[in-house]
């Protein structure tokens, strides 16, 4: 996501320098107020750490590709947003000089796109809010993934805006946006996973190193099963009941391809077996085509969404319990009975 000097107009570069400069000035003031002189060398070493760790490729299972660490979020989670932001500026400055990754003129824009969002939004708001009532592994994972996805999306959006205002390409704004956002959604997810893996490791080994950790945090504030279930149920209700109404009426990718290839989105099959199967489906389906039988209404779509979510959840839970039961049985079969020796 590093912007190059060639891709930015002087006016845009100047504006971004002003924005990033204001954030840097605020950060310097805050770090001075903290009056922790030992933090400066730690910031330097942490900057080198982020730089070096970004050279490591993390294999993404099943894809054959690899991902990298999300520097801003990680630094904020350890040093705090202001110190993390200053450290990221150092990293970006060295990257622009040493590796031409970014540019001297575009530094203001790169600091804004990568450090500002990563540190102030990712660390200062998201991390802080998640850890407000205590720290836990699950919260670290949730905060890291949410933070990385959101900050990368905003960063990618800023790159598109800066490029658009620079007027260096004829590529339409929305075409460029449509290319940038989905790519960075995937990158954000992977970076979030990597960052969370590292932060959870630190939490298990040396939790006091994490920003916002307090000694009495251990065990406190962990998400209980009930709370997790309640949040998931509420999400299902909202998505199934309300968001499903906004679902696109256009055919999905597969239907579109079929329409192009065969002229219709629904292929007709002939034969006794097909007719019987269709009959069974017709008789069994409670809400055919996501509607009440014989009626088309928004309520039908909502009810089918909620009902679908409930049925899928029930199937998943039963499946899990069945697997657990099966696993336990297998385990007891393998274990020798009490009082009996393994080898007689």
């Amino acid at each position: 996501m590093h912007m190059a000097d060639a891709l930015i107009a002087p006016a845009v570069a100047g504006t971004m320098y002003l924005c990033s400069g204001a954030a840097a000035g605020y950060s310097v003031k805050k770090v001075r107020q903290l009056s922790e002189p030992e933090k400066i060398p730690v910031m330097g070493v942490m900057g080198a750490f982020v730089f070096a760790s970004q050279m490591i490729n993390f294999t993404i299972p099943g894809t054959g590709s690899s991902g990298h660490l999300c520097g801003g979020m990680l630094l904020s989670a350890i040093l705090g947003p202001e110190a993390g932001f200053l450290t990221m500026i150092g990293v970006l400055f060295i990257q622009s000089l040493l590796f031409a990754d970014g540019g001297v003129l575009a530094l203001g824009a790169n600091v804004w796109n990568m450090a500002f969002y990563g540190c102030f939004l990712g660390g200062g708001i998201i991390w802080k809010q998640f850890m407000k009532k205590g720290m836990s592994g699950k919260k670290i994972v949730a905060a890291s993934i949410t933070g990385c996805i959101l900050t990368l999306q905003l960063g990618a959006f800023s790159v598109t805006l800066e490029t658009f205002f620079s007027g260096i390409t004829e590529l339409p704004f929305f075409v460029f946006l449509a290319a940038m956002q989905p790519i960075h959604l995937a990158i954000g997810l992977v970076e979030g996973l990597i960052t969370s893996a590292v932060l959870v490791f630190i939490y298990e080994a040396r939790p006091e190193m994490l920003w916002g950790y307090h000694i009495n945090d251990s065990g406190k504030g962990k998400l209980s099963r009930k709370k997790t279930a309640a949040v998931l149920a509420l999400s299902a209700l909202i998505i199934g009941g309300a968001v499903s109404l906004t679902a696109s009426a256009y055919p999905d990718g597969l239907e579109w391809s079929m329409e192009k290839a065969a002229g219709t989105a629904e292929l007709e099959a002939e034969g006794k077996l097909y007719d019987k199967a269709a009959g069974v489906q017709e008789a069994v389906a409670l809400l055919p085509d996501y509607q009440f039988r014989g009626k088309e209404s928004a309520a039908g779509t909502s009810v089918s969404g909620i009902l679908g979510a409930a049925v899928v959840t029930a199937v998943c839970i039963s499946g899990c319990y069945a697997l657990k039961l099966f696993g336990k049985r297998k385990e007891t079969e393998l274990k020798p009975e009490k009082g009996k020796k393994g080898h007689e």
Binding site: G44, M46, F58, T59, F201, R206
Partner: peptide, 26 residues
């Protein structure tokens, strides 16, 4: 190719711990 998902946390985490120790020594 690269670091396996199981070692993501421990690999970089250990490097980070050593880095912080070094920062303090510095």
């Amino acid at each position: 190719k690269g670091i396996h998902i199981r070692a993501w946390g421990s690999f970089v985490g250990l490097l980070l711990l050593r880095t912080m120790e070094r920062g303090k020594d510095v």
